[in-house]
């Protein structure tokens, strides 16, 4: 399982930095865990990256989870109407 930390500010710049790493992770044909507890701000670019990664993982037949999503991340995804489309893995005792 490849673990990748999402950045605190998931703006376009952060997304640009993460895309190559995620591509490599998908091609490595191993599971991916995106650690999302430190995400403080995220906009459309960041949400799209998560959706794209999820879609790529499905296409590649590998597992991808977004672990311990922060409130900021969950709020943004809810606002964008895509929370149900993403593979959130909540912390213990936390409701999805």
């Amino acid at each position: 399982m490849r673990r990748i930390n999402l950045l605190p500010v998931m703006d376009r710049e952060a997304v640009s930095l993460l895309v190559p790493e995620l591509r490599e992770a998908v091609q490595a044909d191993a599971g991916i865990a995106l650690l999302a507890d430190g995400v403080e701000q995220i906009g459309q670019a960041g949400i799209q990256l998560l959706l794209s990664a999820h879609r790529s993982a499905i296409a590649a037949g590998i597992d991808l989870t977004i672990a311990a999503p922060s409130d900021a991340l969950k709020n943004a995804c809810a606002l964008a109407g895509v929370a149900a489309s993403l593979p959130f893995a909540m912390a213990d005792g936390e409701a999805a």
């Binding site: 376009r12 710049e13 997304v15 640009s16 895309v19 995620l22 591509r23 998908v26 459309q44 670019a45 949400i47 799209q48 990256l49 959706l51 794209s52 990664a53 879609r55 790529s56 296409a59 606002l79 964008a80 109407g81 895509v82 489309s85």
Partner: peptide, 25 residues
């Protein structure tokens, strides 16, 4: 109130551009 989010244009990572806008609502 959000009715639907259109994610159909989200590409896979190999065609993903950080500055692209792929969502609709």
């Amino acid at each position: 109130e959000m009715q639907s989010a259109d994610t159909s244009q989200i590409p896979t990572l190999d065609r993903f551009e950080a500055e692209g806008a792929y969502l609709g609502w």
